[in-house]
Design a protein around this nucleic acid. Structure first.
Length: 734
DNA sequence: AGGTGGTTGATTTTT
DNA sequence: TCAACCACCT
């Protein structure tokens, strides 16, 4: 691709860009939305744009606010821009995730929302414990109202930028006996008391600060500071983040958002596709630039993906193309059951290996985590090395969280959640009842647990043994705290873990996990050295720590579709394309058309991960939660145009496409309602014509009666296994 | 404090 | 089906 430097007047980072890319880089003023389709060189544009701002002298690094969603993206941007700028590290700019940047700002203004600047950032686990405690105090039945579900509502309110007072009572309904709004208020108050924020608070508090006229100088200061705002993955922003961006970008109005509405797949955790769809209205005078030339996939793959996503209504619209030729068709395969599916994929993987394709070039992308098992079992049997991406992160591990809790209490004695976590770990004989007494006292006095212990150990209210233990614990913490400034934090951490008896606890533990946990603790301590201070380390743990993929070598990747966003593989396997599994029933039940469209975007993401080959499969029977479900192929399979796919099916399995003319009469799948088409003649396995009311026999479910006919799909009330939907070719007339 | 049986309920995940 | 959680028991 390296051509003559005929246009060498322009800086090198501009030369290899295509026209729209170049436009996206050079349109610096005013609001710009770059609609960057999959594989269209988004990162190149982002980094070139940053380089351009610096190169042209439009801005110093410190005048640029560049926001990403993940630390990985932030890191990559940092490295690549520095590469474009001739290797010099770019210092002093505001580049990071929404959360990290918000935290950085909030630490400067914490007092404006009643926090002090050393606030803790709590994770989901702590959030849940906190809410549960509040619910118990408020006398709400935590069986009937599951704290996790209640927390979900609170988080969605936060995502929408709503403070407790702004939540409409119609939003809460009878949730938690109609007390959820109040619980949200208590939850926020409690967070303030323990000087902590949850993730949502980071942006929420900043919005509160920035939009309060009393803090006009703070806002003005940021406006003066940030001349250019750049946002990656804009389709994943929630309303609070949108408000945050709008407030900060108001100064110059120079905001550039990059994203792809067709790849918005995080609606369930508050992302608002509407943000990107409404960009033109939200930022008047906005330029919209489309990147549609794809450098990743063949045209068959792009066209098939486009055909699927075209069924969505809420789109800005864009069609990818490539100059790399049509390539191979997508393989669509129907199989008998999940096991057959795994076997088939295993065979295809081996075939590709014989063709000298590397395992690292292949991935299996599933809708839900439980689907990985069948493939793991198969690959173990075949001796094919694989790796499942996902699962618990390092810092989510029990022992790491315990260790961090010790450090948190050292740093911030008001951190009740942390103290509660380790007060009796290792076992010190401080049971539930003791903790309850301490909490009750603290609540009554309105003081932190730590201070409650200080008070109560001065009295005779506690049993002597408990009192001594607590005094010893306070003593320990006081000593550790006194060492913070005089000792290297990694050493201090090791000392704390040793002196507290925490290390000893795992050394004496005889469970098989214990050695691994000790290993992790050592890793934690040694990993601390690369940070300046304990405070910086804790911030990093809370906001920045990545799941590192350290392992190398040859393996096929198994992961969820969500996890695959942004990645690409030469060959991609997409199993489980069945109604109910993908699109997920729950998604459709809970969010109707919106849910279905998000599932469809997920399908789009999946297909567009493939460079050269894509395999899509569905099983006619699948075991779910212990019983067999007969499944029908996903509607997304039907949405793949025959021209771009090669369809085949095991004998006895309904073949998508071939006989799909049954629904070719202008019939469009509906979002929520079951498909209903005119009743017509259908045939059993042996060619006998079936009608509603007929008794039939099914291999797995036994005898039953047809209660409804929908195309080739029959609703059958089985005598033993209830009503199920099966394909006509699976039954015989009884 | 530690073990057991019975119930429940079960996507997607970053920070 | 199966794992996680909790109430209850020893």
């Amino acid at each position: 691709m390296q051509t003559e430097t005929l246009y060498s007047q322009s800086p090198p980072y501009l030369e290899t860009l295509n026209d729209p890319q170049r436009q996206a880089v050079e349109t610096l003023d005013g609001p710009v939305l770059v609609l960057a389709g999959a594989g269209t060189g988004k990162t190149r544009v982002l980094t070139a744009r940053l380089a351009h701002l610096l190169h042209t002298g439009r801005a110093f690094p410190s005048q640029i606010l560049a926001v990403t969603f993940t630390n990985k993206a932030a890191q990559e941007m940092k490295e690549r821009v520095s590469g474009l700028m001739g290797g010099a590290p770019v210092e002093g700019w505001w580049l990071g995730t929404f959360h990290a940047l918000s935290a950085r700002m909030l630490r400067r203004h914490a007092d404006l929302v009643g926090l002090s600047s050393n606030f803790s950032i709590i994770d989901t686990d702590d959030q849940l414990r906190l809410l549960k405690q509040i619910m118990e105090v408020e006398g709400i039945d935590t069986k009937k109202w599951v704290p996790k579900a209640m927390l979900h509502f609170i988080e969605r309110w936060k995502d929408r930028g709503l403070l407790p007072a702004q939540v409409g009572s119609e939003d809460t309904g009878d949730l938690a006996d109609g007390k959820l709004k109040g619980l949200y208020g208590r939850y926020q108050a409690r967070l303030r008391e323990i000087n902590a924020c949850d993730f949502g608070d980071l942006s929420l508090h900043m919005i509160t600060i920035l939009k309060d006229p009393a803090n006009a100088t703070v806002l003005a200061d940021y406006h003066r500071r940030f001349r250019y705002v750049l946002v990656d993955e804009y389709q994943d922003t929630n309303v609070a983040q949108y408000l945050w961006l709008r407030l900060l970008a108001q100064g110059t109005g120079n905001i550039c958002c990059v994203g792809d509405d067709d790849q918005s797949i995080y609606g369930w955790r508050g992302a608002e596709v509407g943000n990107i769809l409404r960009f033109g209205q939200d930022f008047p005078g906005a330029k919209i630039i489309r990147l549609e030339q794809n450098y990743r996939s063949t045209n068959n793959i792009l066209k098939a993906a486009h055909a699927v996503i075209s069924n969505n209504e809420g789109r800005l619209g864009k069609e990818l193309w490539s100059d790399s030729g049509d390539g191979e068709k997508i393989f669509v395969r129907g199989l008998w059951d999940g096991e057959a599916e795994a076997r088939w994929i295993g065979e295809e993987v081996e075939t590709l290996q014989h063709k000298k394709w590397a395992l690292n070039d292949m991935a299996i992308l599933v809708r839900a985590g439980f689907q990985t098992r069948e493939f793991e079992e198969r690959f173990i049997k075949l001796g094919v090395p694989y790796k499942v991406i996902g699962g618990p992160r390092f810092y989510e591990r029990l022992e790491i969280r315990d260790a961090l809790a010790y450090l948190r209490v050292v740093m911030q004695r008001a951190d009740d959640l942390a103290l509660e976590r380790i007060i009796n770990t290792p076992k010190r004989g401080l049971g539930d009842s003791t903790v309850q007494t301490l909490y009750a006292y603290g609540r009554a006095k309105g003081i932190a647990l730590y201070d409650a212990i200080m008070d109560l150990t001065q009295t005779d209210e506690l049993r002597p043994k408990v009192k001594t233990t607590l005094m010893k614990l306070l003593d320990d913490f006081a000593r550790w705290r006194s060492l913070v400034d005089n000792m290297h934090h990694a050493e201090l951490a090791a000392l704390i873990l040793e002196e507290s008896g925490y290390m000893q606890m795992w050394k004496t533990d005889k469970t098989p996990e214990a050695p691994g946990r000790l290993e992790n603790l050592k890793e934690l301590v040694s990993g601390m050295s690369q940070f300046e201070s304990l405070a910086e380390f804790l911030e990093h743990i809370a906001l920045v720590l990545e799941n590192q993929n350290t392992s190398n070598g040859e393996f096929i990747t198994i992961m969820t579709l969500h996890g695959a966003k942004g990645l690409e593989f030469k060959a991609v396997f997409l199993p489980g394309w069945e109604e109910g599994l993908f699109p997920s029933q729950r998604s459709m039940d809970e969010n109707g058309l919106k849910g279905l469209e998000e599932e469809r975007r997920l399908a789009y993401v999946g297909i567009t991960r493939a460079r050269a080959r894509a395999y899509i499969s569905y099983a006619a029977n699948r075991r779910m939660y212990g019983n067999w479900i007969s499944a029908i192929p996903s509607r997304f399979v039907d949405e793949l145009p025959p021209a771009y796919v090669e369809v085949s099916a095991d004998s006895g399995v309904y073949q998508a496409g071939r006989s799909s003319h049954w629904d070719s009469s202008g019939f469009k799948p509906q979002a929520t309602a079951p498909r209903v088409v005119a009743e017509r003649k259908v045939m059993s396995e042996d060619g006998v014509i079936l009608a509603r009311g007929d008794r039939v026999f099914h291999d797995k479910f036994g005898y039953g009666k047809i209660i409804n006919i929908d195309g080739h799909k029959l609703d059958i009330a089985f005598d033993k296994s209830g009503t199920k939907r099966v394909m006509d070719s699976f039954v015989t007339k009884a």
